[in-house]
Measured scan of single mutants.
Amino acid sequence: RKEMTAACTPRRRIINLTSVLSLQEEINEQGHEVLREMLHNHSFVGCVNPQWALAQHQTKLYLLNTTKLSEELFYQILIYDFANFGVLRLSEPAPLFDLAMLALDSPESGWTEEDGPKEGLAEYIVEFLKKKAEMLADYFSLEIDEEGNLIGLPLLIDNYVPPLEGLPIFILRLATEVNWDEEKECFESLSKECAMFYSIRKQYISEESTLSGQQSEVPGSIPNSWKWTVEHIVYKALRSHILPPKHFTEDGNILQLANLPDLYKVFERC
């Protein structure tokens, strides 16, 4: 597991931080080997919608929660590849102030007048994250320049770009939802926020969305749709870069829909 690298990086740093090793061990302890084997050997059937997909393993048909699986995938990559990410360069710098204002204007932020003026909160978020810029760049390849612009994001899987519609809320939550006081809790909560931002979430995906850094293989055609990215990038990574937690067998994120021999018997009677 320590050699797990989802995106190509030129050289690998050895990380011996106790906090990170502890988080890696927790993933191992909570892992479910049968689910790992199923995901490793599954045959992708198709997307139901951005949140759900169908896959077959041996004779069984499964309904998989793409949102939760991708979130767990990105969390584990962030923990196992800690401080070893490439950088996704933004085509132009994104001012943190503008991103924070967009987030505060969104109902998702939960902002009320009692929280104070949005401009003041946005300025605080910019200054707060600028103070964390060195650590964010060093460990997470999340790059913020001296003017308070976001200029780079971590490359977690080759050819995958997170849904940038979720970027404003991500920046807001970096400042408000991460435990910045304790090292282990900081790395864990920061990785979880980043994983949620990178995950496939239906509120940020339309039929026209593209999450891939590449064009489709047909010359002159439109960019790959999110469905292509889910199948050929995300579920491909799920084959080798995730140890599913045991609770996925109990919380409805992986559901067995049918045993195909039983279905064949039904059709034979028709």
Score class of each variant (00 low, 15 high):
192 K>S: 06
203 Q>A: 08
199 S>M: 08
161 V>T: 06
130 K>E: 15
141 S>L: 12
176 T>K: 01
183 E>S: 04
168 P>E: 15
64 L>D: 00
206 S>C: 06
122 A>L: 01
66 T>Y: 02
198 Y>T: 01
38 M>C: 13
79 I>W: 15
242 I>R: 14
196 M>F: 11
227 K>C: 07
124 Y>D: 01
162 P>I: 01
253 N>W: 04
117 P>N: 15
66 T>A: 02
253 N>D: 05
6 A>F: 15
157 I>M: 14
250 E>M: 14
145 D>T: 03
159 N>T: 08
35 L>M: 05
50 P>N: 12
115 D>N: 02
127 E>S: 02
153 L>R: 00
176 T>L: 03
192 K>I: 08
175 A>Y: 05
134 E>K: 02
183 E>W: 10
192 K>Y: 12
223 P>C: 10
169 I>N: 12
146 E>P: 08
193 E>I: 04
104 L>F: 04
127 E>I: 14
19 S>K: 14
4 M>D: 08
76 Q>G: 13
155 L>A: 06
19 S>E: 06
64 L>W: 11
203 Q>H: 08
229 T>F: 10
183 E>Q: 01
268 E>W: 15
265 K>E: 08
11 R>M: 14
161 V>L: 02
222 I>H: 09
161 V>Q: 06
18 T>K: 05
48 V>H: 14
193 E>L: 02
138 D>S: 03
114 E>S: 05
148 G>R: 02
8 C>K: 10
38 M>E: 11
66 T>M: 15
247 H>P: 13
110 G>Q: 01
138 D>T: 03
96 L>W: 00
19 S>Y: 13
134 E>W: 06
155 L>M: 09
63 L>M: 05
182 E>Y: 14
236 K>F: 15
67 T>G: 08
250 E>S: 09
64 L>E: 01
231 E>P: 10
112 T>G: 08
65 N>R: 02
168 P>V: 01
80 Y>L: 02
109 S>M: 15
260 L>Y: 06
270 C>V: 15
256 Q>M: 07
139 Y>A: 05
105 D>E: 13
120 G>L: 15
7 A>L: 12
244 P>W: 14
132 K>N: 03
220 G>V: 09
175 A>R: 01
249 T>H: 04
124 Y>C: 12
267 F>N: 03
182 E>N: 05
5 T>G: 12
185 E>Q: 07
243 L>W: 14
36 R>G: 13
201 R>K: 11
187 F>M: 04
215 Q>L: 09
267 F>K: 01
36 R>H: 13
79 I>L: 06
138 D>F: 04
134 E>D: 03
128 F>C: 02
206 S>V: 12
169 I>K: 06
201 R>Y: 12
13 R>K: 08
255 L>G: 11
89 R>V: 13
7 A>G: 13
101 M>L: 10
69 L>S: 01
28 N>E: 13
57 H>T: 04
15 I>P: 05
34 V>N: 08
215 Q>K: 03
123 E>Q: 04
44 F>N: 03
85 F>Y: 11
134 E>I: 05
130 K>S: 15
44 F>T: 08
245 P>N: 11
245 P>A: 12
2 K>P: 13
29 E>C: 13
135 M>L: 04
164 L>M: 05
18 T>V: 11
27 I>M: 12
143 E>F: 12
100 A>E: 00
99 L>M: 04
228 W>A: 09
9 T>W: 13
50 P>M: 04
89 R>Q: 11
31 G>H: 11
35 L>P: 11
